[in-house]
């Protein structure tokens, strides 16, 4: 059985819808991982010990185990708890939390590294410690780690393929559905690879732009 790419165009619509879902899940999970990462960093650094210690334990557990395993835990765990979430939401939560933990590690380091004078200057103006953190320290910390967070987001895009195993009908699953009808795995996985590659390029371009826009505020 040789290769025959002529079957691919007839599934173009299905694949493009898959692309849109992949972009949607990546954007949603990226936002969750970004804001979740900030929240987790604040918890890890400033929360009272009874929040901080369990949090650090779970962060350690999440950083030492595969995303796929975590997706199974979240997907089946929610079912077990009687929470019936659509696969898309479960996928966003799984991907988003996984990368939030990684982003949180970056942001924690950056928060600690912000010049002490910044906190002092904010406090001498009369800002409270939480106000100074929110207005002065955290924005600078986040700005400092935009490039590595961007790398995490690129990894997130590629890892979004994993949510196909819990039934999110994104690009990988769209390709699989087409394969189920045509029995042409090579052609459709190759097509999916090309589409991922293009999304990846687009995402890198967007991230470069964001990096450039934050240049001045250093």
């Amino acid at each position: 059985m040789g290769l025959d790419f002529s079957v691919v165009p007839s599934f173009a619509d299905a694949l493009l819808i898959g692309v849109l879902w992949t972009i949607a899940i990546t954007v949603c999970a990226a936002l969750l991982s970004f804001f979740g990462g900030i929240l987790f960093a604040v918890i890890a650094l400033y929360a009272p010990w009874f929040l901080r210690l369990p949090f650090r334990f779970f962060a350690w557990l999440f950083m030492g185990t595969p995303l796929l395993l975590q997706l199974f835990l979240i997907y089946f765990g929610l079912v077990e708890l009687g929470i019936d979430l659509p696969a898309f939401v479960a996928g966003v939560i799984g991907l988003g939390l996984h990368f939030a933990v990684y982003n949180s590690e970056l942001i924690q380091t950056a928060i600690v590294a912000v010049d002490k004078g910044q906190m002092e200057a904010a406090r001498t103006l009369g800002l409270s410690r939480p106000q100074a953190l929110i207005r002065v320290v955290i924005p600078q910390a986040v700005r400092d780690v935009i490039p590595p967070i961007g790398n995490n987001m690129i990894a997130l895009l590629k890892d979004s393929a994993l949510v196909s195993v819990i039934g999110v009908s994104e690009l990988t699953l769209s390709a699989q559905l087409a394969i189920g009808r045509t029995y042409r795995p090579f052609e459709f996985y190759a097509a999916a690879a090309v589409l991922y590659y293009i999304i990846n390029l687009g995402m890198e371009a967007v991230l470069r732009r964001i990096e450039r826009r934050t240049q001045l505020s250093r």
Binding site: G117, E120, A122, T124, G126, Q140
Partner: peptide, 30 residues
């Protein structure tokens, strides 16, 4: 501290804010 202004050796301007926002952030907030 709102009644006591302080100026530092190393300025400690907020690099993520422009000049206007450096000046207005505290009055707006407080």
């Amino acid at each position: 501290r709102q009644q006591i202004g302080m100026v530092f050796q190393h300025f400690n301007l907020f690099p993520h804010l422009n000049v206007r926002d450096n000046v207005t952030m505290a009055p707006k907030l407080l």
